[in-house]
Simulated assay, not measured.
Amino acid sequence: IGVIMQVRIPSKNDKPSGSPVKQAQREVGMALSVICCHLSMTMIHLCFQCFLIHIQMLWELMLLGEPVVVMAPSPTVSSETVLALVSSIAPLRYCCDYRPYFTIHDPEFKEYTTRTQAPPNVILGVTNPFFIKTFQSWPHIIRLGELKMSGDLPKQVKVKKLAKLKTLDTKPGIYTSHKTFLQKDKSLIKRLLKGIQRKRPSEVQSAILRRHLLELTQSFIIPLERYLASLMPLQRSVTPWKTPPQIRPFSQEEFMGTLEHAGPQLTSVLKGDWIGLYRRFFRSPNFDGWYRLRQKEMTQKLECLHLEVICDADLLGWIKDKSEVEIVDLVVKLREKLMKAVRQQLPVKDGVLDKLEGYIQDYHPLSTEDLQTVLHRH
């Protein structure tokens, strides 16, 4: 609408030192992220105030990446609710698609409204009553009313079957056949409802709810992180003269075997079918996205360890009795690893890449003219 805003979101790879310009960019980005986080925390309670007794169900639907339609009275309510749902599983990244405000003019309208195939893993926020009939084949529909500020005790909606969704019915409700794997946290619900009665500030209510969802997600993801860490090769197995060892493949059954002694029960009081929840999670795009990201990070960690081991090795002693062809092969491989580290921006320790570049320069003259040509070609 005529205004361009340029912002920078802080990265975990940022270093504390840097140029004044970059430092200023970081400070602005951090300020903006704090503002966005505050707005998100403020709206999450308002979006869920009619669904507090079903907050466990909504969290599970997001965790499993289920297809959900949010029917709202306005684009504002639609957008805020969809974004609140997506953020409910933080810090786990929501890896499915989501449309805070979806209309009949969107390119995917025909794809999403067809009944010839299963609904995709996406959350749609809509306002047009036409969608009530169109999306009746979707497994989960959340119908909203106008958001109310805290103070008035909102009537908690009921879970109904999809067949009972009517076009002219404007009452809020959840239409789904989903059976929750975990039991409700009654103490949390009681605390939030009492907070509404006592006119507790919305920011405080949202902070309570956000903390609960954060701890719930962490309890779910910590056993996965712990098991994933066990798949990493031992650091002593990384040697300078061999390619880095492989990460062991993820075994769902092996992971399930760890839950008895190192499962979510160590950090969460919620009872229920945690194993069933994990099995469904393994079939979701959220697991695939999480695993791909963590596998990439672990692979990069191995690459960094290999570079550090190479730089600490006695390469000069190694090449003393080696032929010129073997030396050239070493330099070529060092150069390839250096280029890969720079290209992928690997988080290596300070000085490692400079030392590696020094090795390449030092060993370069040891080759004959013909072999140097090979080096330059690489």
Results as ranks from 00 to 15, higher is better:
Ala163Ser: 15
Thr170Phe: 15
Thr170Gln: 15
Pro172Gly: 05
Pro172Met: 05
Tyr175Arg: 15
Thr176Trp: 11
Ser177Phe: 09
His178Val: 11
Thr180Asn: 12
Phe181Thr: 07
Gln183Glu: 15
Gln183Tyr: 09
Gln183Ile: 11
Ser187Leu: 13
Leu188Gly: 08
Lys194Met: 13
Lys194Glu: 14
Ile196Asn: 15
Arg200Gly: 09
Ser202Arg: 09
Glu203Phe: 07
Ser206Thr: 04
Leu213Ser: 08
Leu213Val: 05
Phe220Asp: 01
Leu224Arg: 00
Arg226Pro: 03
Tyr227Trp: 08
Leu228Met: 11
Leu228Asn: 08
Ala229Cys: 09
Ser230Lys: 10
Ser230Met: 09
Leu231Trp: 05
Gln235Met: 12
Thr239Asp: 08
Lys242Gly: 10
Pro244Cys: 07
Pro245Gly: 07
Ile247Gln: 04
Arg248Phe: 06
Pro249Leu: 08
Phe250Ile: 00
Phe250Ser: 02
Glu253Met: 00
Phe255Asn: 01
Met256Asp: 04
Thr258Gly: 03
His261Asp: 14
His261Lys: 06
Ala262Gln: 07
Gly263His: 02
Gln265Glu: 13
Leu266Thr: 08
Thr267Pro: 00
Thr267Val: 05
Thr267Ala: 12
Ser268Glu: 05
Leu270Trp: 02
Lys271Cys: 13
Ile275Thr: 09
Leu277Thr: 02
Leu277Arg: 02
Tyr278Lys: 00
Arg279Ser: 08
Arg280Trp: 11
Arg280Asn: 12
Arg283Pro: 07
Pro285Ala: 03
Asn286Ala: 01
Asp288Ile: 05
Asp288Asn: 04
Asp288Val: 02
Tyr291Gly: 01
Leu293Ser: 14
Leu293Gly: 09
Arg294Tyr: 03
Gln295Met: 09
Gln295Gly: 06
Met298His: 04
Thr299Phe: 00
Thr299Trp: 02
